[in-house]
Amino acid sequence: MSEEFMCAGAAVGGCPSDLVLDVFMLDAQAVGEPVRAHFGSCGRCVRRVVEYERIRETFMTEVAPSTEGLVAGELSRGRNLLTAIFDALAPIGRIPRLGYVSTALTAILLVGLWNLAGNEPTYIGAKGGLSVEVYAKRGERVFRVKDGDTLRPGDMLRFISGVPKAGYLMIVSIEEGGAVNLFYPQNGESAMNVNERSSGPLAGSVILDEKAGLERVFVLFSELPFDFKEVRTAARLRLDSVPSAMNLTRLPSKFEQTSILFRKGGR
């Protein structure tokens, strides 16, 4: 950031302006130490920061999901953002990844590697922590999947995930019958190395099969490398004792995890 933000002014009662607050909330290190100290000690500015945090949370949970499609649609000439993301798979080609699919799951296809080369993941401003958003494409319609939603066979899923720091990321699903599937990464059985705190769409997508029932998707993050076999073993041990488990235990190293549950229903 420029020098003007490093020594920004005192227009209202000695407090930095909203513009400086915006910069501070994007990256606290982009403003000078006196400004940081002020935001931490001035009662009015502490309230401004708290208000900003709440508005940011509202934006991320309510505003962005309903508007970003139209915003990015401007880029893709009226197309929905997520439709555009899904369509971005087309030039790469659909690559069936049946190697991870158990016999009972033959209708699940892990398809399409979305080439993110040149699109380095960038932290998007939400407070640090593991997060995941799941989007589904059904025909021409793209929508965000919420916990407990019912999906249909043939729905194509994509994931947008945020990680808190450098480490290793994996997404697996566990079906009602106990089958464990690797959703991400799709180019091997080792967790994907993430170089820094980041957030963005993950490469690849998943098409749901015809098998009805509950399915929980787990996003797993560790600072240490791990692979699908370790996760599958832990998942099966966990499910033996707690079939409805919302989190996995007995993983080989310290993990952060989050999950979302959906139901696969009929057409």
Binding site: L81, L116, T122, I124, S199
Partner: peptide, 10 residues
């Protein structure tokens, strides 16, 4: 597209 999404959220 990816830049737009990230910029919007940031």
């Amino acid at each position: 597209l990816n830049e737009i999404t990230l910029l919007y959220r940031r």
